[in-house]
Design a protein around this nucleic acid. Structure first.
Lengths: 235, 235
DNA sequence: CAGTATCCGATGCGATACTG
DNA sequence: CAGTATCGCATCGGATACTG
């Protein structure tokens, strides 16, 4: 931040100076995805410390990238993108498209923790495509080495806005069992592979409710960048 | 570089991981502008140390962003962008446009050294718009505090590909005298102001050959981003 | 829930000097 | 011209612990 400016007369460089501090763009993406609360952003980013997130949010506010709205009555704070940072969408889209086409899937999908993937997946479930009753889906990650929490439960209550995500057994009957790995599941979400292909490759097993299993392609939405032409697939 | 990855399943984040190390994007811009040689890039960036430039070039080569071509016979090395980094142009254009519209001119134009501006200006002279004889133009920067070298000479020889730039008196007769300041000149180059406006504001004085003075708007090209609609002007 | 307050450590970066 | 080789420092960022 106080890092010495480039000192170039070049708009791209000025943009870089604003956007380069670590997590800045990721925070904007998180807000873009709908998070507004401190701890939602934090979970969405997975690995950021609350200290740094707090600092960064204030810097971004000072730079006019975000707006901080404190609701004293309700006792909480919401963060929103400003006009200024919303106007970054074309640039961010262009970066995403570039990454989809020019970064190999194995690299682009590696290194993500199961918890981070699941927290993102939670937002990608289309409740309208699920039965109008409670549904419990258990994900089991068979990575090597195994993640800290290898099991996750997605609990969908009828009428809820978002599913619930648990990393400890909520003690409900399970409708659908999903066996997968971080890379395979990430590849599906990012459009680098598909449910069908991962089943074939052995990266995805479904068991339990056959209806839920069959409709997975509908109730699990893929990323908005999944359809970019020229996306490099998982080999 | 070995900085810990974000660990997010998000193409934008992967793009960031590749592009965030300091000077990476600036190097790409330099190559885009036509530089191919180590010392040209270095001068274009103004403030980078040769040690860091060398390191960064090798990392970028390893990432597939640039190609290093060694001409043993001629005894020199050229750097070129690869297909991969050329495909970043849409993203870079989007960033430039955003910066033009959302970063105030005073901030966007501040802090550049006269030497860096002049080295860029050197590439923005349209030789076809200059008389077919030798022309010498002297720039004088009246900044406060004054730059290390307050005077620059642009020497255009007929038939040359690029003008020469000197910071020490080449001892030629001078055809045109330009008195200006770093911010004013930068504003003209970046399309945040114009020659006419800077003359009015007192940011630019011309004296000497009236023909050269009058045609300055033609022989001095502005940046490709100068015409972005909504560019924030210098106040 | 939404942060602060510290503290420490890695390393990225810059400056300088030197080479084939 | 096109780099290496060092070196030291600043600062950025992560971890941990604590608060209204």
């Amino acid at each position: 931040m106080t890092r010495r400016p480039y000192g170039l007369i070049c708009p791209i460089s000025r943009a870089c100076e604003i956007l380069q501090p670590r997590w800045t763009i990721q925070i904007l993406t998180e807000l873009w995805n709908g998070s507004t609360r401190f701890n939602d952003i934090r979970r969405g980013l997975g690995n950021i410390s609350s200290a740094l997130l707090s600092r960064r949010l204030r810097q971004m506010e000072a730079l006019g990238l975000i707006e901080r709205i404190e609701d004293k009555a309700a006792g909480h704070v919401d963060y929103y993108r400003t006009e200024k940072s919303i106007k970054l969408e074309p640039a961010m889209n262009a970066l995403a498209e570039w990454a989809q086409c020019h970064i190999e899937a194995e690299i682009a999908l590696g290194g993500a923790e199961a918890s981070t993937i699941m927290w993102g997946l939670r937002r990608m479930i289309d409740l309208a495509e699920l039965p109008r009753r409670r549904a419990v889906i258990r994900f089991h990650f068979r990575d090597d080495p195994p993640p800290k929490y290898p099991h996750y439960w997605i609990v969908v209550e009828p009428g809820a806005v978002l599913p619930e995500l648990c990393s400890l057994d909520p003690g409900r009957d399970i409708d659908l069992y999903v066996e997968t790995g971080t890379v395979s599941l990430a590849a599906i979400l990012e459009g680098r592979s598909s449910i069908a292909r991962e089943k074939e490759r052995g990266g995805l097993f479904l068991s339990g409710d056959p209806g839920l299993a069959r409709s997975m392609g509908r109730w699990l939405r893929t990323s908005v960048w999944a359809t970019v032409a020229g996306t490099l697939p998982l080999s």
